[in-house]
Nucleic acid binder design. Structure first.
Lengths: 203, 203
DNA sequence: GATTGAAGCGGAGGTGCCTCCGCTTGATGC
DNA sequence: GCATCAAGCGGAGGCACCTCCGCTTCAATC
């Protein structure tokens, strides 16, 4: 499998100095984003890393790309938690729990939501790694739900993924956390399996 | 009832010259946004209107405020269509149709989505007029659905509103229109009434 | 019609984003 | 070790955003 052509993971071996700079930038970026909030200027990150702003932009063409790269490890951990979730509870509950974790995760990284939107929306780019990972995680949860008969079969994990992203964007501030929860409940209710004869039935 | 303290609708009578400037700005803004896209610079709008950039910012503190004000009439028309919808079809279908119109409306005004997010998220400000109107519209649809027994009773229209906004943000580009549609279906399925004994039932 | 002060104006200036292109440096072949 | 040149670097510069505050104008009062 070939590596991505995005700067997230270099397509071909970078020159040694370039590699150094990239690692340097990432390290500084992680620190800056978590200590100074999501509004740190890219210029300050570049200069702190001892490189020019141009170099930063070459490695990470957008602010989002940098943020995503910075948090990719943690994102991976989030995804890696799925099997454990599925082992310990029904799939619908697992999915709901995962959604919660996801939203909370984003909440702690203000500014991450926008980056994630980009990542998730990169539908045309099958190499966007975080997207792949996230889709895989959601896919596993949805499939387990279908197999256990608690979730529908006819749902595209990508739609669920976008749904979660939408919730996080629309109700993204801490004080809207409750509302986000209700929306996730609603989304999940839409995802639940129910026998055909109960659909659209009038009360 | 007192008017809003937001600049959207002036709190108190503006001085004649200020009033002129505001109208001028709005007229130019409507034209600029629809002809040159959502990325027109505010400076160009200001100068075209023959006022300083400072004046523009005084009247419309954010880009979003200006966009919202510019499109408020059309937004109002969208809301005004609700009774007609409810007269001619079941409430769930009416709601779904309205959602579609809403998304399509936003799609034609790229850049409006962000503005709307602001408007909708302004939960703390009961005077944001567009928000009021939109909530009213959704409220009417949801209530009709509940009365007809096709939608749940326990749903907060504000949540639905945020949900729609989320969909429009998350799947906002034209080529994602289909995905947006599927998400709306999902949302609506979550909103549908179904007899208690069919909930969470295993297949 | 003069006075006055509150309301409004405007645009210079500070900030950050991002691009562009001439210069530098590492890798490769000899 | 040296030559070569693509890969990489850096930061000046252009652009847009937004703030701030000294100046102007309106309208209320006499």
């Amino acid at each position: 499998m070939k590596a991505s052509t995005l700067s997230i993971t270099p397509a071909r071996q970078l020159r040694a100095d370039a590699q150094r700079n990239r690692e340097r930038l990432l390290k500084i970026a992680v620190h800056a984003f978590s200590h100074k909030g999501p509004d740190v200027t890219l210029e300050s990150i570049a200069s702190e890393a001892g490189v020019g702003i141009g170099t930063l932009y070459r490695h990470f063409p957008t602010r989002e790309a940098l943020i995503e790269a910075a948090y990719r490890n943690e994102l991976a951990r989030l995804c890696a938690g799925v099997p454990e979730l599925l082992r310990t509870r029904p799939a619908d509950v697992a999915l709901r729990t995962w959604m919660d974790r996801f939203i909370d995760y984003l909440a702690t990284k203000r500014g991450m939501a926008g980056a994630l939107r980009m990542v998730i929306a990169s539908g045309g780019n099958p190499h966007a790694q975080s997207r792949e990972r996230l889709l895989e995680a959601v896919g596993a949860l949805v499939k387990a739900g279908a197999d256990q008969g608690v979730l529908r079969r006819d749902v595209d994990p990508a739609d669920v993924m976008i749904g979660i992203s939408g919730v996080s964007l629309a109700a993204g501030t801490p004080d809207q956390r409750q509302q986000a929860g209700r929306l996730l409940d609603l989304l999940l209710d839409g995802l639940r399996y129910r026998p055909p004869d109960s659909r659209r039935r009038r009360g």
